[in-house]
Design a protein around this nucleic acid. Sequence first.
DNA 1: CGGTCAGTTGAATAAAATCAAGACTTGTGG
DNA 2: CCACAAGTCTTGATTTTATTCAACTGACCG
Lengths: 233, 233
Amino acid sequence: MSSCDLCVVRNRAICASLDAKELEALNAIGRTRKITPGESLIWEGEDSVLVANVIEGVLKLSTNTEDGREQIVGVVYPSDFIGRPFGGTSGHGVTALTEAKVCVFSRRDFDAFAREHPALEHKLLERTLGELDRTRRWMLLLGRKSAAEKMASFLLEMTERLGGNGCKLSFENPLQRQLTLPFSRQQIADVLGLTIETVSRQFTRLKNEGIIDLPSRRDVIILDMEALAAEAG
Amino acid sequence: MSSCDLCVVRNRAICASLDAKELEALNAIGRTRKITPGESLIWEGEDSVLVANVIEGVLKLSTNTEDGREQIVGVVYPSDFIGRPFGGTSGHGVTALTEAKVCVFSRRDFDAFAREHPALEHKLLERTLGELDRTRRWMLLLGRKSAAEKMASFLLEMTERLGGNGCKLSFENPLQRQLTLPFSRQQIADVLGLTIETVSRQFTRLKNEGIIDLPSRRDVIILDMEALAAEAG
DNA sequence: CGGTCAGTTGAATAAAATCAAGACTTGTGG
DNA sequence: CCACAAGTCTTGATTTTATTCAACTGACCG
């Protein structure tokens, strides 16, 4: 029995395409690894040496300009795949936002395994197509939305994404949801293409208007989901 | 002999993964179609009914906010694949920028064919991974770059992309390249997340500084590639 | 209790958007 | 072939928006 049988993302990650025997073979070329917040797994610009599945935690994908400005280009959750298979260099760094556990593979080993298992490649293709859709939708936000619209869109996206992924999210009242953000203010700014001050001002405005409450730095309670959706543009 | 044998993108599109017999089968479920500038092949939000390969021309992928602001989220060239295989709705419209020729398939037919041809799915996966990389790089531009940096980056990207794809591009002087843009000023604005006025002002500034010349609306001659690269950030 | 770090708030500034004309292209019909 | 109309692009003046700079507040930790 391979350790994958106990894996919490076994049926959601790309591994779901494999039978017991294949899974054992995949398990043989991978190993799990823990990552602490702020620690990086992959660096921007280096050539792709490893790929991984996220088991636990949240990680950011980010790129930087030469002079140090950062843009977060993606956020990954449990069952998501990270890294760049089939050659090339990694266009973005991968860094943990929370305590995280990943299942890593050498890219060469993974590539070879994938090419022999079309069902795995198919899962990976579906996942990649979905990620491309999501990324393109985010471009509309970056290119065309105001700070207020960006914040509202961000909070709505978080509400969706943090469901069920081991992140706290209460549903007692369907219109009043609490979420614990895996981001600092600066990181939210880096997701939205804003400055930390603008993000902060938007938070206080939303609070003053009674749309959200902020019990602590990382916690947000959405008091008026309708109003938030109306602001998202 | 199938008509694919005469296809100019035969060896660059995902079809390159197929042998003569397979290609004939694919040819049987597809048909070529011409599109005129401004005409759409796919509309945002409708469920995915067709996919296609670009044979000739340039097309834009775009999304709009409810109130009509537009963001171009991708630009496709000959040999590129368009559409959303494997279910779901299309997150963006696809519209011709120039006269274009595409090879279209019903999505259902294509999906079935792809699942029986792992080599084709592999090509599609590589293409999709590449497109995702490119899209994420563009997010840095949208979220973090100034108007000047955006314009310089855009012109550099165009210089790369318009090479060899049937678009005019002269190389007599390696440092002085002429390109014919497939975009109007408004479309450039929609790619960069700017207004048409800002784009226009950046063009005249670059011209005044001797970095480019503008022989006509759609033509740009890059006089100082170094300076342009330095401005791209 | 002081020190550090993250976040907030305010005032001044800068950047790009908006508003408003005007100029140049392109195409059309007389 | 010219005149004119429509559309596209440019330019200028003004306003808006978000950034920048700077000070301050509160939380957490030894």
